[in-house]
Amino acid sequence: MQTDAGAAPGTPPALDGGAFLRVRGLTKYFDITGGLVPRLLYGRKIVHAVEDVSFDLAEGETLGLVGESGSGKSTIARVIARLIPATAGEVTIDGHDVLRAGPDEMKVIRKNVQFVFQDPFSSLNPRMRIERLIGRSLTIHFKMNPAARRERVIELLEQVGLRADHIYRYPHEFSGGQRQRIAIARALASEPTMILADEPASSLDVSIQAQVLQLLDEIRQRLGLTMIFITHDLNVAEFVSDKVAVMYGGRLMELGPTEEVLQRPLHPYSQSLIEARPHFGKRERLRPLEGEPAIPINPPVGCPFAHRCPIRIDDCTKADVPFVEKSPGRKVACIRV
């Protein structure tokens, strides 16, 4: 594959078919064997957290990555941002080969790709005042002098709905919603082109969650950011994303335009996920899917969802299920569809 490593800023690399983010065969295993003795006694234990994931995202698009805990959705984001190393695969962001970038190129990628974490109580250094907490990014990426830095931090704070005098405070002096606003301001400081958000609002109260979502959405639109938004909440995914990817057991089950996936899910897992969601004005009984997701430790071949699937056949567990395009932009990993 050819990539436009030297693309000028603003010109999308043409040879990738317009994809701003391109993920191919991304795989991440964790070895949880726990030392030599257990290894000799029980063999290796490998968690297949992310298995052979591929997708594209165009510039300015938002992908909602949906799945339950343990599905590998957070791990994907961390691997894409290279916060943890990948086991295999390829990630290209705006022409940069993320997983093989040297220190200089990595600096550019760090500037362009920012992360918003789930828990605003643990993602902010408790010993830094807000000015420094947000300003570090400005020092690192723009070498700003203290006066300019302060001015810019205040500007960023005001953009996220906080006040100038907040720069003197420490994180513990803020509520959860305010802290998440600070985390967003920190992410915006380096003027990124892409944001990876890992359940940024799910630890917050309903009314505060809505404020944070609204803010993120407004910023995304205004700055034309490309975004991966990880969530377990289908309402949230529906609200923020252009495309939705459904994950289960480390693999993508279904990918497509938000409306289509959530209104007319093709994969039996997506269907059961959507049916399990409580609804207003739907007082009839829930029809939950039985069984629980298995942690993919040394998983067998085949579809990870097969053990819970209502329409499984023997072939589902005989070979890995390919992730194939069913209609333009719509991919499903199911042999029954």
């Binding site: 961390r78 760090r110 993602s123 250094n125 920190r186 992410a187 400081a189």
Partner: peptide, 13 residues
């Protein structure tokens, strides 16, 4: 292992 240390890496420290 703390998230703010991960966050530090993410902003390019």
């Amino acid at each position: 292992e703390r998230e703010y240390v991960e966050a530090a890496r993410a902003i390019g420290e």
